[in-house]
Write a protein that binds this DNA or RNA. Structure first.
Length: 216
DNA sequence: CTCCAGGGGGCCA
DNA sequence: TGGCCCCATGGA
């Protein structure tokens, strides 16, 4: 199994996803922070609550009432940390000239800027880069590592070789990268859970783990 | 009741 | 660097 074949199977099963459910690039930034180790269902509630108090972009977070924000995002969990992260990240982006200024940065500068922010780790950074700013990035999350490891694309569930990540980003178009990550998340939610549901998984016939799992 | 979710930071060896 | 703990709500 390799990533090209996995992508083919996912495309057949899920089609084109037009991924990251957000209305605006700034909402992607907000969602990327809120979804840290949190189910998207709970993030949706938090975003809805924010909208109810009139907050749907970064300047509204910077100028908003901190206590109201804290209450609004409670459903997404870790709300004390996330309130602080939302505000400091939003403030930093505004100080840098807003999201339109980020758009003008080259990939290296943008990556350097984002990764310097507290509360923005590798996955959050990459999510913002591709889904808010259209950069060719392969977002690596827990599902990616689990699926790559179980299918046999990588050996260790904690190490994704830099060479492989570069190859994926070089070989796939922006649209393909966008869709690939979305499909991986969906596969992770639907089948490749902590407790996997291999019997109906679209990858089962070519997955090392499913073979082991279903053998008598 | 237990387990887990589209992580990240701090700390320590 | 790599492992461990903490953060917290809500669904299965």
């Amino acid at each position: 199994m390799n990533f090209v074949r996995l992508n083919e199977i996912l495309n057949e099963h899920y089609g084109n996803l037009h991924w990251w459910p957000a209305e605006t690039p700034e909402e992607v930034v907000i969602g990327a922070i809120l979804t840290q180790n949190t189910s998207w269902r709970n993030v949706e509630k938090a975003i809805e609550n924010l909208k109810k108090i009139g907050i749907r972009n970064l300047s509204q977070i910077v100028n908003g009432d901190q206590e109201k924000i804290r209450e609004a995002i409670k459903p997404s969990g870790f709300y004390n940390q996330k309130t602080a992260r939302l505000i400091s990240v939003s403030r930093a982006i505004q100080s840098a000239g807003g999201i339109d200024s980020l758009r003008k940065m080259d990939d290296a500068s943008l990556s350097h800027f984002l990764s310097s922010l507290k509360g923005v780790g590798k996955e959050t950074e990459e999510s913002i880069m591709i889904y808010a700013l259209g950069r060719k990035k392969f977002v690596v999350d827990k599902y990616t590592m689990r699926i790559f490891s179980r299918t046999g694309i990588i050996q260790s569930e904690t190490i994704l070789p830099t060479e492989l990540k570069n190859e994926i980003e070089n070989r796939m178009s922006l649209e393909e990268l966008n869709n690939f990550h979305g499909a991986l998340v969906n596969l992770g939610k639907d089948f490749c859970k902590t407790k996997p549901v291999c019997v109906q998984c679209p990858v089962r016939n070519e997955c090392n783990y499913a073979k082991d799992f279903t053998l008598p």
